[in-house]
Amino acid sequence: MNVVLPEGSLAQTLGLWVAALLTLGVLSYLVGDNPVFRLTQYLFVGVSAGYAAALAWTYVLAPRLAELIRDPGSAWPQAIALALGALMLTRAWKPLSPLARLPLALLLGVGAAVAIGGALRGTLVPQVAASMVSVAPVDYGGGLRGWAYALDAATLLAATIAVLAAYQYHAADRTGPAPLRRVASLLGKGGRAIITIVMAALLAGAALSFYSALRGQFDFLLFGLLGGRGL
């Protein structure tokens, strides 16, 4: 169901002006921290928390509760889930607070398992496999192009290893024979240089994203509000 606020209605006009005032309220931070900016911050936290909680109730808890009332026999997993959810409330009352450990234990146990499974099958194995590529120019068709691709593959592999070595380079435990430590140190320094490039790329991307958000609000103020269109 898609709600469309009527064009030109009082709700829309009021909304546009409220949105514009809030936009200016947040931008007022440019002149320094002030009560208007703080007000917008608190308002934002309140609305976002209320919005997320309302969705959690509407889309997760209410449907399951309704199902449980409608058909208690077949909805026993929902009954267990909601009962455990209720047990979480006991955390607020000290004599019964140990009971809250059960749902927390389940939540953390399942969460840890899902994270491990995902990291292993979704990142660790495929990314290591993707790093193990041929560095022979013949495999890329030979010639100058083959050499270029082979060089790329070798750089990719070496840089990945260097970044991993950077963790060891920072680690406190630096045992092992001196030549090995020297190689690890060199690789670590190389890894840090690669991480600097990644950070630079992230900075460039972040600049574009921040700018896009600001540009969107200027679009709203210039064309949305003054042009009389909705958001």
Binding site: G15, Y211, A213, L214
Partner: peptide, 17 residues
Amino acid sequence: FRYLYSPLQATLLGLMT
């Protein structure tokens, strides 16, 4: 969502520029 939440979140990120 459209007139309170959206402008606040978008402008806060824009402020980062």
